[in-house]
Design a protein around this nucleic acid. Structure first.
Lengths: 218, 218
DNA sequence: TTCCTCCTGACATTAAGTTGTCAGTAGTGA
DNA sequence: TCACTACTGACAACTTAATGTCAGGAGGAA
């Protein structure tokens, strides 16, 4: 039996949530006790919620394994937004579950060292903030498509008239890349910093020095 | 360098969405061309959206990797419900992304062979059905807690007065385990088969032969 | 057609990982 | 305190996986 198959089998056995002695697991899988201890270590390290109690045995909680997924940005956005919506729904139990799932997801999402990024020196991604920020996503995207100017009031208090150019997921935050008319320059605005967003009647066209490709060239 | 580290590094390089020649990847990671070809095969097999074009090079799409997660049932419920809600929201683009993400998740969730289960012989888990079914989850759970009887009308047309005992995720479906007064027996009802659910004024107490532990003993 | 670069199989060699045995430690409940 | 069972380190032996070299093939663009 290959090791990965054996780990799978262990998880199947443990899925019942009952207490299992290492000896029995060893018998069931045909390996030594020492190997079971090692396997349990591997399972724990990979995030499987199983505990071993001395004198008792091993017990896992209800256990559904979602293997690695590769997501597009749209899919990640959908995931964030949907959990945020549920998290604020007040549905008993579900809001908590959405929060804990969201925390698990944030825990494992890659964080590029580059994205430590100046100005973003927060240690954790606050769930409430993400909910508020992600809410603006659809409106921002519509404005980008329609080339519509927006007025943003940020949590820091300032208001800016901007041309939204792009929304992306950079590091562990959703951000908008904008040309700010108020500041006459490019800006990267975290969506969770947006307190209020108002659609303005003015449209914009690509002007030299103010377009997305200019931003990228800088 | 360990293989897994190298695969990680390859993904980091490819994340920029640009075209990369295998030769350059080999130089960057210090292995032979043949090994790069093998590595790319492994990445593709694991779901990474990367393609190699002959004469050109390798290119990946925007790429966010969510490693394996271990969820509780509550968290899976939250995930299903939240995506279902977003999927029906009509938000442009997001409903599609929620659907595609949901499909990815269903694709990889474990399906116990036991759960092929008689009567459930469907090949795929229809998204629409899941949305409708998951909707009843909160009401069911409240009724279980309050020991409230319910009248269910199923998609097959029948109506039953039931005592809801438990909701769980079995195989790839959410189901309710109930004592059906109409049929005088236990039943397992897929949530997506519930067309309508009405709360009745009657409460129930555990009667011998009709409780959850009786179900489990059978 | 030529060039460029991905693609695949085979095989000997090399590298890495895994295992069981043994010894010793430790926590919990009766 | 004792019994039960999880826990950890070390090491030799064994197993499995990975690698590079070589040869040959294939698709797409200029």
């Amino acid at each position: 039996m290959r090791k990965t198959d054996r780990l799978s089998e262990l998880m199947t056995i443990l899925r019942d949530g009952q207490v299992h002695k290492a000896d029995d697991l060893a018998l069931a899988t045909g390996v030594s006790l020492r190997t079971i201890y090692r396997d349990m270590e591997v399972l724990v390290a990979s995030g499987v919620p199983v505990q071993g109690a001395r004198g008792t045995g091993y017990q896992a909680q209800a256990l559904i394994t979602l293997p690695a997924l590769h997501l597009t940005e749209d899919e990640l956005e959908a995931l964030h937004l949907s959990l945020a919506i549920l998290g604020e729904s007040g549905m008993e139990g579900l809001a908590d579950a959405a929060a804990s799932l969201s925390a698990k997801i944030e825990q494992v999402l890659p964080e590029d060292s580059d994205s430590a990024g100046e100005g973003f020196g927060f240690a954790a991604y606050p769930f409430d903030g993400a909910a508020r920020g992600v809410r603006h996503m659809p409106g921002l995207k519509a404005a980008i498509k329609a080339r519509q100017k927006l007025r943003l009031r940020l949590q820091t208090g300032g208001a800016e008239v901007i041309r939204p150019l792009q929304v992306d997921y950079w590091g562990r935050v959703w951000r908008a890349i904008v040309w700010s008319e108020t500041q006459a320059g490019f800006a990267e605005i975290r969506l969770d910093q947006i307190a209020e967003m108002t659609v303005l009647p003015g449209l914009f066209v690509d002007e030299p020095g103010k377009s997305l490709s200019d931003y990228r060239a800088s």
